[in-house]
Nucleic acid binder design. Structure first.
Lengths: 343, 343
DNA sequence: CTGAAAGCGCTTACAG
DNA sequence: CTGAAAGCGCTTACAG
């Protein structure tokens, strides 16, 4: 079944294509009668504007691109959901591509999106990305680009982030406030900024409270897995029986640690208190439930799209907005893995 | 920076637009010299074909639509990943929309995708969808549609599924083979076909082994949550202390059950054996690890796209392929929550 | 081997 | 209030 065109409607009605087009778009200079007539026939004939033609004329596709490191990941899929839900409200569709934490792939995906003529781009950078020419390149096409979560300070575009350092500080401070005297940290890999920042927040909290920073209490997670959390927890207890608190880079690892410690008969939070990061849904499910930092994925997606939308609107009216950096609030979610008494 | 057009290249080179277009596409009737010249300049000027114009001419967008009930879900995000990875290989991009398990939304998303002129559509149906005119409608536009995971038998299109009933039977049979005499079932909601099929598989295994089917041993999960699993597990032990095996509709619920039973001091699998469904990554992480049915999400995504691709190719050559139904293999993954001895 | 021309389906500035 | 015309940037059948 061939789609209906403006031409067909015009011919049947014996009027011009111009008038049909205007009637459908409610131009004020078309008579009510004509409008009614055109609209009725359009419905009858199931008319839908050919989006390819519209795109070509208007030079916009009402489509944005989204590149993330990994789709199968609770935080990122929440962000995706936030982006899509917000985009839909504004009549935009979203094309998603995955970089797999690879710089080469990220660049390639960007190229694809550029060829597709998306109106704007949302990216969370791959861990491997250390060169940013592809981003600059994209922006030079006059198209807005917004970075979220994993961003590069050096790139001059809008960014939506959380304050990892401050959040980590809050997490560590909570351990201190609830009586922990010797606090370990399971950090993420050495490279990503957020794992660095969380580590720095941990250190700052110690310093501010005049507690000694002991590098041997910092364990580096490489695959950030449940298993790794368990293994380090066991190792920690053996190597440092005096540790009474751990701040862990991400909930998945923290849950692994909690489970292992529990199996070893260690009392949480009595003997060791634990704070995670991300507020993964399993964190409230396990026992003892995990005190953690809530990282607002869905919200981040929404805000990122909103900002991109603003910039796309600006482009349409030949304006250019100065880049902004939006820091989303994180919150400490107190649960059973830390003590409730404030000392 | 304005994008380069064929016209600009043609003018600079003093040749026609036609020749430039042909040279770039390696038409055999263009001289080597011209081709070299054109291609070089195209690279220099960073030429990219205007996709809107190409779409309009070729009447295809090299884009497909994907509608799923819920993005933030381990199984579905695996499927998305499979689809995107395969689509990319064939030069297709993917627009994702979420139905939120709502029929109305599903219909609306479909409309959006239709307006966008996607070349094909992949859908996993919402639980609430009981009317299928929107699907038929889409197919009447001459565009291929492939259903996956949550499908409707009545719709005459290709489908990619697993055999839920058989898999459930295998799961239950495994409990029987390892010595369970009285087996309960935590099932999903009443409506979705897959929850019905898994229940039927459970019943069939009992029947085939001349074991009594006792409806009071079937618990209906409504939100399929970790917590629900724990609650039903506790209830089950109280109401039916003689039960020694449970087949559970999905891993999330099974993990909730395992955790609670463990907390109650019940030996798994010594006293009660448990089999889940889906092979969620947490299933191998918890202790005891969960015996489950592996549901190949990534694979399902890949296969679904491959089928859609074939049908899109057929459409291009004015053919139409008869619908096929592909049943993907599931596998029983034996772990610690069931006994290893075969009786 | 090269190119003029038609046309994909729409939008909009302009004339009447 | 209506419509003829130009044009978005490309592809391709056809002529030479």
């Amino acid at each position: 079944m061939k789609p209906t065109t403006l031409k067909e409607i015009a011919e049947i009605l014996g009027i011009s294509i111009t008038t049909v087009s205007k009637a459908l778009k409610d131009y004020p200079d078309v008579s009510k009668k004509t409008k009614a007539m055109v609209k009725e026939l359009a419905v009858t004939m199931n008319y839908r504007p050919n989006s390819f033609a519209v795109n070509l004329r208007t030079k916009e596709s009402k489509t944005i691109g989204l590149i993330i490191p990994e789709i199968v990941h609770h935080f990122f899929s929440s962000v995706i959901k936030g982006i899509i839900s917000q985009a839909e409200k504004k009549g935009y569709l979203v094309i998603i591509l995955q970089s797999d934490e690879s710089y080469v792939l990220e660049k390639k995906q960007m190229e694809l999106l550029l060829n597709k003529n998306v109106d704007g781009l949302l990216i969370s950078l791959a861990n491997a990305t250390a060169d940013f020419d592809h981003l600059t390149n994209f922006m030079e096409q006059g198209k807005p680009l917004v970075l979220f979560d994993k961003v590069a300070k050096i790139v001059n575009c809008s960014k939506i982030i959380i304050d990892d350092r401050k959040a980590a500080e809050t997490a560590t401070q909570h351990l201190i406030d609830t009586g922990c005297k010797r606090i370990a940290h399971f950090r993420g890999p050495l490279l990503p900024q957020n794992s660095i920042d969380r580590f720095l927040g941990y250190r700052k909290a110690l310093r501010d409270n005049h507690m000694e920073y002991d590098p041997s209490l910092v364990y580096i997670c490489n695959d950030m897995s449940y298993e790794e959390g368990g293994n380090y927890a066991e190792q920690l207890v053996k190597e440092h029986p005096d540790v009474d608190g751990v701040f862990i880079n991400t909930d998945m690892v923290a849950i692994g640690a909690i489970t292992r410690l529990r199996d070893m008969g260690i009392d949480i939070p009595g003997q060791i208190s634990i704070v995670g990061f991300s507020n993964w849904f399993m964190s409230s499910a396990i026992s003892p439930s995990l005190t953690t930092i809530d990282q607002p994925g869905f919200e981040m997606g929404k805000v990122a799209f909103k900002r991109l939308y603003k910039e796309m609107q600006a482009v349409k009216s030949k304006k250019q907005l100065p880049p902004t950096i939006k820091v989303l609030d994180t919150a400490l979610v107190k649960r059973e893995s830390t003590r409730s008494v404030t000392v």
